[in-house]
Nucleic acid binder design. Sequence first.
DNA 1: TTCCGTCTGTGAATTTCTTCACAGGCCATG
DNA 2: CATGGCCTGTGAAGAAATTCACAGACGGAA
Lengths: 217, 217
Amino acid sequence: MDPRPEEDGSTTRVPTQTIQRLTVYRKVLAELHAEGVENVFSHRLAELAGVHPAQLRRDLSIFGSFGSISRGYEVHDLSLTIGHLLGTDRPQTVALVGLGNLGRTLLTYRGFEERGFRIGVVFDNDPEKVGRVYAGRRCHAVEEIEAVLPAYGARIAVLACGPVGVEDVVDRLAGAGVRSILNFVPRRVPAPDGVHVEDVDISAKLEMLSFLSREGE
Amino acid sequence: MDPRPEEDGSTTRVPTQTIQRLTVYRKVLAELHAEGVENVFSHRLAELAGVHPAQLRRDLSIFGSFGSISRGYEVHDLSLTIGHLLGTDRPQTVALVGLGNLGRTLLTYRGFEERGFRIGVVFDNDPEKVGRVYAGRRCHAVEEIEAVLPAYGARIAVLACGPVGVEDVVDRLAGAGVRSILNFVPRRVPAPDGVHVEDVDISAKLEMLSFLSREGE
DNA sequence: TTCCGTCTGTGAATTTCTTCACAGGCCATG
DNA sequence: CATGGCCTGTGAAGAAATTCACAGACGGAA
């Protein structure tokens, strides 16, 4: 399920951490491109991304050779290439479940569009909200997920609902073709087979910072 | 800077990943406690946390011995112990910079209080907002950070402002005693010495999920 | 052309993280 | 009391990630 097919038919498992770093490289490259920089060496790019140069080169080498010895990497090219690897080179539709404070904030967050994501359809289980229109999207009931979602072709969903009944929502999403879920619900959700759940637990991050801020005392 | 002093005078570096898992253990333990469970074995606790039992035992062993052979771990005790290790056993004041959509959402998010964090003071650089009161906190100007913040004793700050001038904000925070920063600004911020910056980049997470959702195709 | 400096991509070394597997301990049972 | 089963904490093994260090490649200078 996890191995990635290579052109030569072999398969290489790409570490999650590598993918995470790829997103950082792309972000840095976008900034460099905006500044008019055309070429960059691994040394400089790694510095900006906060990693070791060898790390950067190895991360890229998993996917191929993109650098030139004399000029380093072409900023714009590499940015596009990474976008292609990540699958963000063409806009993707994302489903949002939960229209509380957080959900509505995410709905109007412009950073998504910049990175190629578009919240195309929203769900909530509050009868008060179902049928109403939020930021141009009509809110559907959670029970409608299987019926409504496939038409949008969303493979990614964002979970910003309350903790009760999350399992049910996840199952419905999985049944409707969703392969990846970004989970803001502060609760461990068991992922169905073939579905990736990525947790964003802000309080947990704060707890970590709490620990780190006391080190050396 | 990073090593953690032990009681016997030696120092052990605690891996960031271990700390992250500690927060998960604590969350699971809190759920178990709420369900009335009093004791739990590493096997079960690890399963609920989604890690290997040996991993869990080793994570805890970094800090000491907390389990009993016959009864496993005392749910409530261990929860308190981890809270103590993380430094979340007593409420902590957190500073918030940026009162846009995201900032205001965070300000009213109740999940923080549950985990021992309280946003005690807020800043923004929009003159329109300075002086106004949001959720009971009067908004201060960014220039006032050094003057205002120390009175609150906040060692943790949340950054939810716009990308321009973040470096300045970070420097001011560091100068006012902040040791850890939770950064929602989608931009790499160089951390001053002794300050931990933890990035939360939601778009980057989506990019990762985009990659993962295409695996095996 | 030849030489020099410096870059990428990558085997090999190293460091770090994870899992195995078991000593030692405790309880329940007979 | 002895025995058996199962647990924790932890050395040691194993796996994985990171970094070193260099072969080979390229451009520029003379």
